[in-house]
């Protein structure tokens, strides 16, 4: 139910709406719950609404953390 997916904003539309893309699939969603979203930003999409902006720096940090967690483990 709380499923939400990262999508990229490709066009800002009137009325707090935006066009987004996920792997080529286009959809019009609402940006009414978030602020300062620009074209190119990734947002977390849930039932037609962006819930939050995705932070690319934090995403990178988490990937580094994951890589570290896997280091040194007997595989």
């Amino acid at each position: 139910m709380c499923l939400a997916i990262p999508v990229q904003v490709t066009e800002l539309l009137d009325g707090d709406m935006a066009k987004v893309s996920l792997d080529g699939v286009q959809k019009v969603i609402s940006l009414a719950l978030v602020e300062d979203v620009q074209v190119g930003d990734y947002v977390i999409l849930h039932v037609g609404y962006a819930l939050n902006k995705l932070d690319p720096e934090e995403a990178q940090k988490t990937l580094e953390l994951l890589a570290q967690a896997g280091v040194g483990a007997p595989s």
């Binding site: 890589a67 280091v71 483990a73 595989s75």
Partner: peptide, 20 residues
């Protein structure tokens, strides 16, 4: 899919499991 695929890497999952 950016921000999805990189968090589904099976090899890395097994390595983290080994650390656990």
């Amino acid at each position: 899919m950016k921000y999805v695929d990189e968090y589904r890497d099976g090899k890395l999952a097994r390595q983290i499991a080994a650390t656990i």
